[in-house]
Design a protein around this nucleic acid. Structure first.
Lengths: 164, 164
DNA sequence: CTCAGATATATGGGATCCCATGGAATTGAC
DNA sequence: GTCAATTCCATGGGATCCCATATATCTGAG
């Protein structure tokens, strides 16, 4: 738990540092990169982004507003469902999404790439156990040099947590 | 990374749930329990609590104010150094600190206790590698059924992160 | 003793997080 | 077609987080 707290704090502080350098917060960058990863010709709604980023839709809504203000993304009503908005990357936003990476995450990637395969497997398995033990829906833990996780049904995960 | 995000979100949501039940937020409870753990006859300063909880002193100051408002803790000038305040648990606060535990953390503890010893060792080692790879000062990763970590020099850790 | 540099903490500012809620749109039973 | 239930998202509210800063205090060199 203390190691987790250290990791979380380092990520937070790194996010703040990156913010100073690039003018972009960690959350904004993360949403940008999530958008870039999702756009195989397909825009993402606020709810989808929220599921992908493991945050609440209201938080994503605010972050997207910030991105809009900076010309990095824009909202467009979805054709199939007027309640939905689609979030589109601008070319400016795409450029940032494909080049920027928060330093702490980069270091985590490097560290993981240096691990022996068996250790990495067990680490993943252990984290998976933790996720499962916390009553979050059971899915393989995907580390960040793998494919993004499929969209989780966020509401359901919440329900499970409450019921425990 | 996704597993980490899930864990973090589950902890956050659990903190919110606990808040609804007990009227105490996760941060407040965590500071309370950190205080209770530290008080082998010794009060803690704001800076010490910040180091222990891996958060900024300004955040702890705000949380302690909240605890004071609720009669769970109080501030007292330190005898040896007039810049310092000591944070003292009240009996009310102590009672809560020793009985309440956020559900998600309890579930993490249970999960870890069920792991084979070898797996647990490797999990700890892997997390330690992650911490080290992120440029945080190198110390053994203590999991939460062990002794609290010694006080880290927080400023120094920050410097290391920046220099990377 | 003096004072520059360092330390401890409260406070303001801004960003993010979740909860709650309202308004608009969608869905499907009747 | 009607309408209750559900869904989607923007917005407000409150808590927490870190950075920056001001004020008070401490420390140690001169």
């Amino acid at each position: 738990m203390d190691a987790l707290r250290r990791i979380v704090q380092a990520l937070r502080l790194s996010s703040r540092d990156a913010e100073k350098e690039t003018g972009m917060s960690g959350a904004q960058l993360f949403v940008l990169q999530t958008l870039a990863a999702a756009e195989a010709g397909k825009a993402a709604s606020i709810g989808e982004l929220a599921a992908r980023t493991r945050t609440d839709q209201s938080s994503v809504s605010v972050v997207v507003t910030r991105l809009e203000e900076r010309g990095l993304a824009l909202r467009r009503p979805a054709a199939a469902d007027a309640r939905r908005v689609e979030v589109i990357l601008t070319s400016k936003g795409r450029k940032i999404a494909t080049t920027a990476e928060p330093p702490a995450q980069a270091r985590m990637v490097e560290t993981l790439e240096r691990l022996p395969a068996t250790k990495l497997t067990i680490l993943r398995s252990g984290l998976e156990d933790l996720v499962a033990g916390m009553g979050v829906e059971r899915q393989p833990a995907h580390l960040f040099f793998e494919e993004p996780a499929p969209k989780a049904v966020r509401k359901k995960a919440r329900t499970t947590t409450v019921s425990s």
